[in-house]
Design a protein around this nucleic acid. Structure first.
Length: 429
RNA sequence: UCCGGAGUAGCUCAGUCGGUAGAGCAGGUGGCUGUUAACCACUUGGUCGGGGGUUCAAGUCCCUCCUCCGGAGCCA
C-alpha cells in the first residue's frame, strides 16, 4: 500500500492508500466516527464506519487522544457533503497514544502558547504561517538567483561592532571578544568586487531591550548589494523585490492565507509603482496629519503608522538627514545634509520592512565619519581598503523576513512569524 | 527604564458588600450511522503567583517582591 501525503489524495480517488500522521480531533457519532488527521502536508478527515472499517480499528478508535500518532490505511473517497477528499478507513496502526495535549482546540494565552512553542507549531495557524514564511524565503532566493546575484553569506561571529550605537550580543572567542552580527552588509560590500551582484541571507542579532510587536532579538534578513549602483537602482530593485514576494505568496499560498483569514484584496494591490517621497516631503505630510515630528528626527512608530495608512501600497521614503543615519551612507550631492538612504514602509501600519541606500565610495568622507562617531578605526581597515582598490558607486538594502511575514500574513505581532522567537525575557524553548 | 492591565482547576475565565471555591473546554464513564471546536448525561480535578500585614474571618482590603500582557522609549 503506498504511503502518500494527504495533499495528494485527489490523485488516488477510489484507490487504497496509507496516511501517516497525528490525530487533530476526533468525533464520535455512534457507529460512524471521524478522525481529523494532520500529516504535515494537509488536514484530512478520516471516516470509521461499522462494517467497512475493521472491528479492531473500530475498537481502537476509543483509545485515540488528540495528537496520538497513527497510520491509517483505507480508500480515498469524496465527502458526500462538500466533495472534499477523505479516507474511508480499513485498518489502523497506533504508534503512540498521546498524553492529554496541553493545547486544546479552545483559546489560550500568549504566555502559555510561547512556553509550549514546541507543541504550538502543530496548530493550523502556525502551520499556515510557517508555510508562508517558507514561500517568502524561497521567493527571496529565486528573485536574486534569477537576476544573477550570487549568494555570499557573511559571518555570524564578527570581531567588531558594525555600528557604534547599537547594542550587540557579546561572546567570548578564545579570549577575544566577538559579537553576533547585526548585518552582513559590510561583508557584502567586499564581495561585490568579486561578483558584482551578491546577497546574503541569515540570522542577525540585536541586544536592544525593545518590547514591541515589531522587534525580535534574533531575526532573519536578506541583503542584496550591487556594484555600479546608485540610490535609484537600489529603490527600483527594492520595489520590484517586494512586489515579487507578495505576488508569489498570492500565487502559491492562497490556501494558507485563507486559514489565516487574510484580506487578500489588500495584497493584490501590491503592484509597482509604489509611493515615493523624500524624508522632507514625508515630514511635511506628517505635519498635515497632526504629527509634531521635527525635521531632523527619525520617525516614531506612530509616524510610520499614520503615514502608511494614507496609502494602500508600500512607501519608499528616501534622502534622510545624514545626522541620524549610519556612517557609510553616500551624501546627496545637491544637499550634503542628506544621506542617500531609502526605507520601504509596508502598508496597514506594519512599518519599515526594508532599509538601505547608496554607500559612500569616498574614503575621506568615511574616515571623517568614523572619527566623528568615535568608532575604532583599526576595526574598519579592511572595509576602507575597498575604497582603495577599484571603488565604484554601490548600494543595497536589507529586508527583514519576520516583518514581511507578519505583514503578508496580517499578524499583529512578529513573534509568530519565526519558529523559535527570541524575545526580551524569552529564551525558552 | 516608564505608564497602564493581569495572575483563581491542565487551559480560558467568573467569583457581588470580607463569610468556608464556580463554569466551559481538556481528562474519565456511558449513549448516538455524516460529524466539522459535534451533541447529550454523569464524573475526576484547587498551595486562589510568592512573602508579610489588618481582621473573629481574606481569592476579595493594605504593603512588598516576582512573572506575563498592552503601549511608550530604545531601534544600520
Amino acid at each position: 500500500m503506498p504511503v502518500i501525503l494527504a495533499k495528494y489524495m485527489g490523485d488516488y480517488l477510489g484507490k487504497e492508500v496509507t496516511l501517516q500522521g497525528w490525530v487533530r480531533l476526533k468525533r464520535k457519532h455512534g457507529k460512524i466516527r471521524f478522525v481529523e488527521l494532520r500529516d504535515g502536508s494537509a488536514f484530512v478527515q478520516c471516516v470509521f464506519v461499522k462494517g467497512e472499517t475493521s472491528d479492531e480499528a473500530m475498537e481502537d478508535f476509543k483509545k485515540l487522544t488528540q495528537e496520538s500518532s497513527i497510520e491509517l490505511t483505507g480508500t480515498v473517497q469524496q465527502n458526500p457533503r462538500d466533495g472534499s477528499y477523505e479516507l474511508l478507513v480499513k485498518t489502523m496502526k497506533i504508534y503512540q497514544i498521546s498524553e492529554p495535549f496541553p493545547i486544546t482546540p479552545k483559546e489560550h494565552g500568549v504566555d502559555f502558547l510561547m512556553d509550549h512553542r514546541h507543541l504550538w507549531l502543530r496548530s493550523k495557524r502556525q502551520w499556515a504561517i510557517l508555510k508562508i514564511r517558507h514561500e517568502i524565503i524561497k521567493a527571496c532566493r529565486d528573485f536574486f538567483d534569477e537576476r544573477d546575484f550570487v549568494l555570499v553569506d557573511s559571518p555570524i561571529l564578527t570581531p567588531n561592532a558594525a555600528e557604534g550605537s547599537t547594542t550587540l550580543f557579546k561572546t567570548d572567542y578564545f579570549g577575544e571578544t566577538a559579537y553576533l552580527t547585526q548585518s552582513g552588509q559590510l561583508y557584502s560590500e567586499a564581495a561585490i568586487a568579486a561578483f558584482k551582484k551578491v546577497y546574503c541571507f541569515g540570522p542577525t542579532f540585536r541586544a536592544e531591550k525593545s518590547k514591541t510587536r515589531r522587534h525580535l532579538m534574533e531575526f532573519w534578513m536578506v541583503e542584496p548589494e550591487m556594484a555600479f549602483a546608485t540610490l535609484d537602482d537600489v529603490m527600483n530593485l527594492a520595489e520590484e523585490f517586494v512586489e515579487y514576494i507578495v505576488q508569489r505568496v498570492l500565487e502559491r499560498r492562497m490556501e494558507e492565507l485563507k486559514i489565516l483569514e487574510r484580506d487578500v484584496s489588500k495584497l493584490e494591490k501590491i503592484k509597482r509603482p509604489f509611493e515615493r517621497m523624500t524624508y522632507t516631503e514625508a515630514v511635511e505630510q506628517l505635519h498635515k496629519l497632526g504629527s509634531d515630528i521635527k525635521w531632523g528626527e527619525d520617525f516614531g512608530g506612530d509616524d510610520e503608522t499614520i503615514l502608511t495608512k494614507q496609502y494602500d501600497k508600500p512607501i519608499l521614503v528616501h534622502r534622510f538627514p545624514a545626522s541620524f543615519k549610519a556612517f557609510y551612507f553616500e551624501l546627496d550631492k545637491e544637499n550634503p545634509e542628506l544621506a542617500l538612504g531609502v526605507d520601504v514602509l509596508a502598508p496597514e501600519g506594519y512599518g519599515e520592512i526594508v532599509g538601505g541606500g547608496e554607500r559612500s565610495a569616498d574614503i575621506e568622507h568615511l574616515l571623517e565619519k568614523i572619527r566623528e562617531e568615535g568608532i575604532p578605526e583599526e576595526n574598519y581597515k579592511w572595509y576602507l581598503d575597498l575604497r582603495r582598490y577599484g571603488a565604484v558607486p554601490h548600494g543595497g538594502f536589507g529586508l527583514g523576513i519576520e516583518r514581511t511575514v507578519a505583514w503578508i500574513c496580517g499578524l499583529h505581532h512578529v513573534r509568530e512569524t519565526i519558529p523559535w522567537p527570541r524575545m526580551l525575557n524569552r529564551l525558552y524553548p
